[in-house]
């Protein structure tokens, strides 16, 4: 018994760098040797997928990508799958960004989607089937501006083309002209602000993908019906990849995620047991 208690005491005094090392191993091992653990898709993500499926061919989807490389692991897989889904369904897409770091990530995702087997033969053309409007400062002011006149808010696209010369933008003059609004959000301004503006004020049908940290704040919007679908964190992205049928980085990361969670649960349980068992001895 004494040996056990001594062991537990040593565990409590464990150098945290061992925990970091174990966590790194737990994440790295499944990435090198995938286990393919099963996971089920979340209904909120299924609804998000369905919202896009419900659109008629040629509908215009407005996507606001509000994240930067800091949220790339969680949100970039979603964005890539989203564009692939949109292109495959022959929908038009206009992308805007309220985060400065987003436009290059958007271009990467679009390029990746355009290279997909089922998308390539469609011969999609920039500024006719898709356009990246780039970054706009101003947070909610920019959102409001888009609600009234996107052309005034984004006078030119990311590559500098005046919006008046972009054929796709002729049918999209304000937020309300789009058939669906998708927000990919890594923080603020993001889903909360867009729900209040695009959905609350302009009445758009809206779905969102956000980082895991933001998910608890955004779930009430989904529960209240303000969001028609919601994908939270890497798990949400993996769910969406599964639904679209293009398992990518997020799906591959699910094993590592599960192992990481198991390790944390084990440490929490063990830490609590050690704490309570050695309480008397420490006193």
């Amino acid at each position: 018994m004494n040996a056990l208690l001594r062991g537990l005491q040593r565990f409590l005094a464990l150098d945290r760098r061992w925990i970091f090392l174990l966590m790194a191993l737990c994440i790295l091992t499944p990435l090198i040797v995938p286990f393919g653990l099963p996971f089920s898709t979340d209904p909120a993500v299924e609804n998000l997928y369905q919202a896009i499926e419900d659109l008629d061919e040629g509908s215009v989807v407005l996507v606001s990508c509000d994240y930067d490389p800091g949220s790339k692991p969680e949100l970039q897989p979603f964005t890539e799958a989203l564009f692939r889904h949109i292109f495959r369904r022959k929908l038009k897409v206009v992308v805007s960004c309220l985060w400065a770091g987003a436009p290059p990530l958007v271009n990467q995702a679009i390029e990746q989607a355009l290279q997909a087997e089922e998308v390539k033969p469609l011969g999609l053309r920039e500024k006719i089937d898709y356009v990246n409007l780039g970054y706009k400062d101003g947070r909610q002011l920019a959102m409001l501006g888009m609600g009234e006149n996107i052309h005034a808010t984004f006078p030119q696209s990311y590559d500098g083309t005046p919006v008046s010369q972009i054929s796709l933008m002729q049918s999209l003059r304000k937020l309300g002209d789009s058939d669906l609004f998708v927000n990919v959000s890594g923080g603020s301004p993001g889903t909360k602000e867009w729900v209040e503006t695009a959905q609350g004020r302009f009445g758009l049908k809206m779905v969102a993908a956000c980082t895991a940290v933001m998910a608890p704040d955004n779930i009430p919007y989904y529960e209240a019906g303000q969001l028609a679908g919601l994908a939270g964190g890497m798990k949400g992205s993996a769910d969406y990849e599964q639904l679209v049928g293009v398992p990518g980085l997020a799906t591959r990361g699910m094993d590592a995620q599960s192992f990481g969670h198991l390790l944390i649960i084990a440490f929490i349980a063990l830490g609590n047991v050690a704490y309570f068992m050695t309480r008397g001895r420490r006193n």
Binding site: A24, I27, P73, R252, Q257
Partner: peptide, 16 residues
Amino acid sequence: GYTVMGRISLAIGRFQ
């Protein structure tokens, strides 16, 4: 829990 999930995702991204 969600925060932990997010942080692990970031680590996964870097390792990837």
